[in-house]
């Protein structure tokens, strides 16, 4: 069996994008260690065709443990399955996504496997000479980067911040094996029962998986103005985020909150409108690939960490930006027509 494992994630039978990001990370580590890379999927209903795409993105082997009892994440059963696989195959490295699932499952498994675990890593490498996994992560609200290793325990486990790296391009000619592993029923723990998802949830947003996040702060002045951000998010193919301040004022729901008491995101593009850039908010966005700040205050902290900042009236800027994006879109439609 392979010595580097990544955990694929699925939702309702569809593989999540983060599964491929992890394979890119795992491939680099496996190559440095001159070992094989396996992707593990615990879930239900993922087709063979989809499992093959894990091979195309870097896996040498795919182990799929699929059963209706694994369709929804419950920590106890997933943990039993993973602990059992670790005991059987003794991998050296296991990477999971720093998602709600990964950040619940991995600490549970690490305790039971007496393994070292590092949370929410943004860089991974192999220590020359020893072959130990070097795990680098932001800590203390992103003020420091700590590099951590696990010298004496195996497996070396890490959760990896979603969107902090790109997947490898798909190579349909890559060879690899897909192995279906039946679920051993003694591993099923029925104490916790998943009942599905709340159907009436309004104002929910999947910020963690958005490539573009348009966020608003106190400078947005009122709830109605968040419609401007919704418009831009739609034009740019993204989602709307908010500061704690905006959420506490009731302008937008908590699932939109980014920062220390909200979500940590790492989109390709983050745009902050009317956001001063409190340290607590910056902690949640610092690893974004590109940061844009729009604020009338030239001294706003967000301007300091931005790749591109506009000092000006945010309503004027947002409206002009929307107008230009709409123009571009119409231009594109005419080109195609």
């Amino acid at each position: 069996m392979s010595f580097v494992w990544t955990l694929a994630e699925q939702h309702e039978g569809r593989l999540k994008a983060v599964s491929y990001e992890l394979l890119g990370r795992g491939r680099a580590l496996a190559d440095k260690l001159d070992t094989k890379l396996a992707s593990l999927l615990i879930g239900d209903g993922v087709s063979d065709e989809q499992l093959q795409t894990l091979v195309h993105h870097g896996a040498d082997e795919v182990y799929a443990i699929q059963d209706p009892r694994l369709a929804s994440f419950t920590c106890e059963t997933y943990s039993n399955v993973l602990v059992h696989l670790i005991k059987t195959y003794r991998p050296s490295v296991i990477l999971a996504a720093a998602t709600s699932t990964g950040r619940t499952l991995m600490p549970h498994v690490a305790v039971r496997s007496h393994a070292g675990l590092t949370a929410d890593c943004t860089e991974l490498d192999i220590e020359p000479g020893t072959g130990h996994l070097l795990q680098t992560r932001p800590a203390i609200g992103g003020n420091i980067m700590a590099t951590i290793k696990t010298p004496d325990h195996r497996p070396q486990m890490a959760t990896v911040r979603p969107k902090s790296s790109r997947p490898l391009p798909a190579d349909p000619t890559r060879a690899g094996r897909v192995i279906e592993v039946p679920l051993d029923l003694v591993l099923v723990d029925e104490r916790v029962q998943a009942r599905g998802y709340r159907g009436d949830a309004v104002d929910f947003v999947n910020l963690e998986e958005a490539d573009v996040v348009i966020a608003g702060g106190r400078g947005m002045k009122k709830a109605e103005h968040f419609a401007l951000l919704q418009g831009l998010a739609k034009a740019l193919g993204g989602a709307v985020g908010a500061t704690r301040d905006a959420v506490d004022r009731g302008w937008i729901g908590y699932p939109h909150q980014v920062g220390l008491s909200g979500k940590t995101i790492s989109p390709r593009l983050y745009v902050g409108a009317g956001i001063s850039g409190a340290i607590q908010h910056l902690a949640g966005i610092k690893t974004s690939e590109t940061i844009v700040s729009i604020n009338s205050d030239p001294d706003a902290s967000l301007h300091q960490v931005a790749d591109f900042g506009i000092v000006g009236d945010l309503f004027q800027v947002l409206n002009e930006l929307q107008r230009r994006l709409d123009e571009r879109r119409r231009g594109g439609e005419e080109d195609r027509a």
């Binding site: 420091i144 980067m145 960490v305 591109f308 900042g309």
Partner: peptide, 25 residues
């Protein structure tokens, strides 16, 4: 503790970005 801190670094705070002033239309 299975994990050991090897190194602590302070990431660069600024990205050396462009700041454009837009004070009229």
């Amino acid at each position: 503790s299975p994990t050991k801190v090897v190194k602590v670094a302070t990431p660069k705070v600024t990205r050396g970005g462009t700041l454009v002033r837009a004070l009229d239309e």
